[in-house]
Amino acid sequence: MSEYLVLIYSDEADPSWRDPANRDRVMKDHMEFGEKHGASLRGGNALHPSTSATSLRHDASGKVTVTDGAFVETKEALGGYYLIEAADLDEALAIAKDVPAPLGGVEVRPIMPT
């Protein structure tokens, strides 16, 4: 078995996020996903919007600069993740297809074994 991180990206600026009914529906979708794939889930969380992010950058001399905002500014921001366990990439992708990701999509990354 291998572990994969499923990163959920979505367009935070989309006005539909302001609709409470829409947010409730996405939440419900995540609950359903959790029930369906509970056996494969090793963890997962939603993140506060990228406006809450703080980034630290290291330069060559070792100096650290603290800045407000996400590390890379993109239209679709990282909004949450699941840690899943799967036999192989095909199984991981089958699970990842069920991850609710309205207004965006997910990225699947294999976890390096320690």
Binding site: D88, L89, D90, R109, P110
Partner: peptide, 14 residues
Amino acid sequence: SVSHIPFQVPAPLD
């Protein structure tokens, strides 16, 4: 190798 792309004929659905 690192993402474990399987060596198999895909499931009938895929």
